[in-house]
Write a protein that binds this DNA or RNA. Structure first.
Lengths: 222, 222
DNA sequence: ACAAAAGTGTTGTTACTACACCCATGG
DNA sequence: CCATGGGTGTAGTAACAACACTTTTGT
């Protein structure tokens, strides 16, 4: 009897990068050149090197694609169905990242046909099993938003209560009463006014706030 | 310049198998024979074959260790720090399983020194990074218990309200008021009385219940 | 008759929802 | 002075926590 074949599974990372932009929740997609997925879109990803952790891989990819380096990043789930890549056995440790849209500057490389933000409600056809990854990532994001202070990673340093409310409304796909929202958020003691106002618009200037802590805390928000 | 080394990462699965037994939350551990971890305890695990998914690997291992096959199983997290295995680069897709203690029959193999249930509050020294896996698994279990109907997988088919309350008290490490607990659980409409009573004890016989659905549903329970 | 767990309701308190008007600014 | 979003309080309701005694069985 011949020796059993040695394990030959490739480990990759795919990262769903979210931002809130033009009133919509968007994810970053790259358009692929290589066969058999030519023209299809996919979340940015790559193989894990022998000497790096999957988190390091994700950070590296994030930097390559967006230039950003200090973002919220979290492991999502490992996708491993046998046929998810048509050519080889590749398992993907998927992660998701949150970025304030003001901080991003998309890099175009000739590795891909295109790189673009897509509203998650109108995603194009995706390569591999990325449709499943998308679904899982959106679910996780919604859950995080409800039970943690993670919204800090989607806003810039200084923001108004209305900005914050918009983030919740857009991602959770609801509308909330302004007064109730403010009461709730302020009671949680997650954010503090910085004593400045954002003016320059044709209306009353809004008080600016910042998050007290920029790291994950579990709090029931909505 | 030589070619860069091809990726050589081994993919394994480790499964934390929980049960509630003798009034305590317990996890199944095997005691290792092979160096350099001889004598240390670890969660049961193994390599993923080229032709199986990680879930299939987990199911296979579960069957080998406990003989049980129809249990709750969920992917937990992928652990991938570079030094987690002293000998090779191995990443572990950890999962956790829940078993009703009445259904188990531990199999002993000569592959391990010993196989045993350990109360999670008194775990021995663990091999690899299994201490981290344990922590993550316990956190996840507590969360699942609070937000889902998952308790069905820890009880036998028929159980009393007190049995159910014990599961919550033991795992969440709290005590709850009997009347409030019953009101809450019954209002959620997750369980139904089967019309039988459990007698034979020196006290009033207790009504027996069963879960309506034996699959994951998200409900706020506690 | 006694021990041991099962079973059952009410009341006070708290948290949440619904809701409408005045304010400050730029044009 | 008008349009635009910013900012604020109250009252009714529903959900939750606290709490103690009676019932049924086996010995």
């Amino acid at each position: 009897m011949p020796n059993p074949p040695k394990q030959s599974i490739i480990v990759a990372v795919d990262t769903v990068i979210f931002t809130v932009k033009d009133g919509e929740l968007c994810a970053l997609l790259i358009q692929m050149k290589k066969s058999p997925y030519t023209g299809l879109w996919a979340f940015p990803g790559g193989r894990v090197e022998n000497t790096e952790t999957t988190e390091e891989t994700a950070v590296r990819i994030l930097k390559e694609q967006t230039g950003v380096s200090n973002v919220y990043l979290e492991q999502l789930k490992t996708f491993d169905s046998i046929e998810r890549d048509q050519l080889e056995r590749v398992i993907s440790v998927a992660s998701f990242a949150l970025i304030s849209s003001s901080e991003v500057e998309l890099k175009t490389t000739d590795k891909y046909q295109d790189v673009k933000w897509w509203p998650v409600k109108k995603l194009p056809e995706l390569a591999y099993d990325h449709k499943h990854i998308a679904k899982e990532a959106i679910t996780r994001l919604k859950s995080r938003l409800q039970y943690t202070n993670i919204a800090w990673s989607l806003l810039s340093e200084e923001f108004t209560l209305t900005d914050l409310q918009r983030v919740y409304e857009i991602i959770l796909d609801t509308t909330v009463d302004k007064r109730n929202f403010r009461k709730r958020i302020l009671a949680l003691d997650l954010i503090v006014p910085i004593g400045k106002k954002r003016g320059g618009e044709a209306n009353r200037p809004a008080e600016l706030y910042k998050f007290k802590h920029k790291k994950l805390e579990y709090v029931e928000i909505m």
